[in-house]
Amino acid sequence: MKELLLFQVGNRQFGLDLPLVRSIHGASAFFEKQVNDGDSRVPMVRFQFEDMPLYDLSAILGEDLCRQEMKMGSSATSQTQPPSYDPENKKVMLVSVQGSLVALKVDRIERVVSVTSDQIEAISPVFKGTALDWFPRVLKQEKQLILLLNPDGIRWDAAKKSEADALSDEFRELENALTRMMREEEMAKFVLHVSSKILEKMVARRIGKVEKTLRKRLAEEEGTHDK
């Protein structure tokens, strides 16, 4: 048997492995503190002298689910009006992810359920990217399907996005610096020159490989004829 904690975001239920949950608190117990490290896109919260990233699932998932439901008309989750939650009653779960803590803000904590492993199924590989990182498994209940959140996937996904953003920031800075240093025409010439050099090298490398393979084949064929 496996224990899962069910929680609500908007009008949708999600689940989480209970052993990962360290504690649950009223959202008002937290105050957000922006820090200036690399991952500053995710707000940080301080709780009991410890800083940790806070993922507001009500905002992150709520927005995406609304968009998804709009794209397909009504769905399993929009048969009823979304409940309105008092912001004061929102909860924050502190979840352990590879030795560090992550805070997840949700609309409501539902209950703990005990399930057997055959009630849990890996989500189809048709899903990919963030969807698969965040929700790799689903709980099959008699009347509904409940997506199971993978907090490790959230961190991993955030790290990937942060890395991509940092890279695009670097390119933007380089572009700005070059624009300041050179005229547009000169920069275009420079980019073309560098690109052609890179292309030349790549082609030469490929040709070198082809040549090597052909030489090897010729040597083998010659060896066969000698025999």
Partner: peptide
């Protein structure tokens, strides 16, 4: 059941 962040052609 929609799955957050899924591609547009996947309903859920």
């Amino acid at each position: 059941y929609p799955v957050p962040f899924s591609p547009p052609h996947v309903e859920g």
